[in-house]
Simulated scan of single mutants.
Amino acid sequence: MGRVYATPEQLTTWTGQPPPAEAGRLLARASEDVDSALLTAVYETDDEGLPTDPVVVQALADAVCALIEYRSETGDSGTGARDRWDSVSLGPASMSGRRAAVNQPGGVDLGDRAERALRRAGLLPGVIW
């Protein structure tokens, strides 16, 4: 498993709700997506690749929790399947119109609150000089 930037307790604090049974999986998936959005961001890390600056640590935790909250509100599982087609029928099977890729950092739809948390910490847009 990769780096995970938030805990079930932080998710509870963020949402005001008890963490879902699959909180560990959701936190890991959202952390991977935040990593994808930050491929060009520059910040100090320890030997395990975790941020060391408390502002960055908090921003990543906030972004992960906000992304989980956003996906919960929109019914998105985070697999990317939700936005693949603009029309789907089940019988007899019919699909039409692939939707365009998400125009977000790293191709990940972070949702507004997660993106703002990363921008406030100076992590987006990530630019390598």
Score class of each variant (00 low, 15 high):
22 E>D: 09
69 E>S: 08
61 A>H: 12
117 A>C: 03
117 A>V: 02
45 T>G: 04
29 R>T: 06
47 D>T: 13
5 Y>V: 01
80 G>C: 09
111 G>S: 06
106 G>R: 00
119 R>Y: 06
62 D>A: 12
103 N>T: 12
2 G>I: 02
10 Q>V: 01
103 N>K: 07
78 G>E: 00
79 T>N: 13
57 V>C: 09
32 E>F: 10
124 L>T: 03
114 A>S: 05
89 S>R: 14
116 R>N: 10
85 W>R: 08
38 L>P: 02
1 M>K: 08
101 A>T: 06
9 E>P: 14
68 I>Q: 15
55 V>C: 09
67 L>R: 14
56 V>Y: 00
65 C>H: 03
78 G>H: 00
65 C>N: 10
29 R>N: 12
8 P>R: 10
95 M>S: 14
52 T>P: 09
28 A>R: 13
84 R>W: 10
117 A>G: 05
127 V>Q: 13
48 E>R: 11
128 I>D: 13
8 P>I: 02
20 P>F: 00
122 G>M: 00
126 G>N: 06
76 D>Q: 04
69 E>V: 06
89 S>C: 14
28 A>M: 09
89 S>P: 11
19 P>F: 02
80 G>W: 01
59 A>V: 01
66 A>C: 03
17 Q>N: 06
8 P>C: 10
46 D>S: 12
23 A>I: 01
82 R>I: 08
33 D>A: 11
117 A>I: 03
20 P>V: 00
55 V>D: 12
87 S>R: 15
123 L>G: 03
22 E>T: 11
19 P>I: 00
46 D>G: 15
50 L>W: 07
53 D>S: 15
16 G>R: 12
79 T>Y: 08
127 V>N: 14
43 Y>V: 15
15 T>N: 05
2 G>M: 08
116 R>F: 11
129 W>F: 05
115 E>F: 07
13 T>K: 11
68 I>S: 06
93 A>R: 14
